[in-house]
Amino acid sequence: MSSAADAHRRRRRAQSPAEQTFADLMNGFSLDSGRKRTRTSAPVPEREATPVVPQEVGVPTFEPTVREPEDASIVRAYAWTGGRTRSNINLEIETLVSANDQSRQSAGILQAEHQHVVELCRSPRSVAEVAALMRLPLGVVKVLLGDMAERGLVDVHQTASAGGDTPDLGLMERVLSGLRRL
């Protein structure tokens, strides 16, 4: 798995900086998407070249936990997501997403990552599956899919247990029936 990921990374490095994708930049995501992290507003002293980016409440904070060679990468990442706040869409690891008519019509004018998600999601895939098959960390995939959902490029099939509660009795009964038929 690592060799394919390395080759992947090498291809990305060979591209011009302008073509580097957000996946290269957002490698500081945690499982909780950094929501619980607080972030100081002062720039880190040794990275004087880093522009001060306004912090919006609700925007996933990401601190590259590996030192980035280019400080402008943070600015590019914000530009990529447009500084959008997370919407009401709740993406659990098992939440299914699927491509829709709009994404199919948009083929050819989508960014590379979006295009690959659309191809992958012609059949419904869970967030976890997208992360595994695209070999991206979970936190990055949540932002990617959340962004695509906000733009209407994928349909998100919210689970009945959205919000962290245990599934309701109806869903459990359905799971039970399905298991008995296996």
């Binding site: 500081g28 945690s30 499982l31 619980k36 595994a132 960390p137």
Partner: peptide, 27 residues
């Protein structure tokens, strides 16, 4: 399948990814 994630609450350099294995079946 195997998904990677970064464990939360880690300051500084990340030295280990968490790998989470899983499977799916349609009921």
């Amino acid at each position: 399948l195997t998904m990677t994630a970064l464990p939360p609450e880690r300051a500084g350099l990340v030295t280990e990814l968490v790998r989470i294995q899983f499977g799916r079946v349609w009921l």
